[in-house]
Amino acid sequence: MRYLMLVLDTPDDPGDTEATTPIEKWAEKVYGSGAGIVGDRLRPQEDSVGVRVRRGEVLVTDGPFTETKESIAGFDVIEAADLDDAVRIASEHPMAFGGAIELRPFWTLGLDKHDDKNDDKNDKD
């Protein structure tokens, strides 16, 4: 089962940043084990660019879209055996201590036509 891990900055709930493993260690473990597919840190929200099409016109906007304090600092796509496995991986991420991780299960439409056998079983609704 595939999950997107949204790594969130939560300035309103800073948590404790002590007792965390460095991100390099985490990445080494998760990507080394094959659970990690792709991931990176993202440039801050002020560097984001919005794209939308309205009445046939492409509208490009600069800066953040919403004034929320929480922001996405990074992401990882992981392949986990199940939710508990994903929770385990997420709970070891250093930002789970200082920020928060949001796990979003993939719908797995398979539009990119990658031939991962597991994907087929994931969603049957």
Binding site: D82, L83, D84, V87, R88, S91, L103, P105, D123, K124
Partner: peptide, 18 residues
Amino acid sequence: KKRIRTTGISFRVPPPQL
């Protein structure tokens, strides 16, 4: 029950850390 499916909850005893 739908949420069990969509979030990937499995019928397994959780790992020791959790």
